[in-house]
Amino acid sequence: MSKWQTLQTRSFLESTARQRAQGLVDEGSFTELVGPTERFISPHLPELGEAVEFDDGVVTGIGLLGKHPAIVISQEGRFIGGAVGEVGGAKMVGALKLAQSIYEKLQAENPAEVQARRPIVLISFETGGVRLHEANAGLLAHAEVMDQIQNLRHKVPVVSVVGSKIGCFGGMGFVAAATDVIVMSEFSRIGLTGPEVIEQEMGRAEFDASDRALVFRTTGGKHKYIMGDCNYLVPDSIAAFRQQAIAIAALPMDAIENLRRIGSRSAIERQMQLVAMAAEVSPTDAKDMWKAIGNENPQQLIDANYTDFMAQAKRLTPAA
């Protein structure tokens, strides 16, 4: 078995950012851009005596999904929690700009092939958001990433791939929400405020951050799938995420637009209805929402394996 084939069967959750990046695209097609040998370390961490990484915790590069150039951004949670600083942020912004320039070149030189060769962006999140050691630069980078995502609207699908240990929180939680499509496994999470902060704000009686099951049903893949916040829930293997990415790359752009949760007046009108529903249901647990959506036995869904969950879960869909 080649190295790439071995990667395919690996747990996405257990894989490093680089393994995820290499495995998400076609065999042998990944070229890392501004990789470790370029040695773009954070200029700020050494001043603080903090360990540095040659890639600053973000792997960026390009591969192929068939004929589609796939721009990959993959965050490494084991390096300072995947938090985004100046260099890592610039790599994200640069990769998104690259996707735009590839699209524009294609549009200008080969308009008939746009659908067949349209680039796709895959962001494999593993982050709590801003890196506090360089907080201001990290925050400003988040705004730039958001700006670039809007530039790609209706042109290049931007896909959140969320199957990592840390998941996607803080300012990057906004970024994930703003992408076109979200693919998750049940073992990962998306949110804004992490469990410890909620516990601190509301008290342990309201939210016990050490209760793993509670944490997962509040922001985990199964919950996000039921709420319509994640479009596709996949098993925990690199191959499963890759198969989903291939299917998304083949979709026409208007179908991609229908997968969005936010980004237009009609989309936010639906979200406002969901907020009104929340005010009415006043959920004390995610299970209350699952019930309100039509799942009579939430506990059964929590316990269900992937196949049974997919067969049984009733869910909201973004465009419904």
């Binding site: 998306i190 949110g191 405020t193 509040t218 709420m227 949760r261 936010i262 936010i268 959920p283 995610a286």
Partner: peptide, 20 residues
């Protein structure tokens, strides 16, 4: 920063305003 906000998806609301 609340529990209900996480259950419903606070990140979408602020993301929505940024995109707008």
């Amino acid at each position: 920063p609340g529990k209900v906000e996480e259950i419903i998806g606070m990140n979408k609301s602020t993301g929505a305003y940024q995109l707008a």
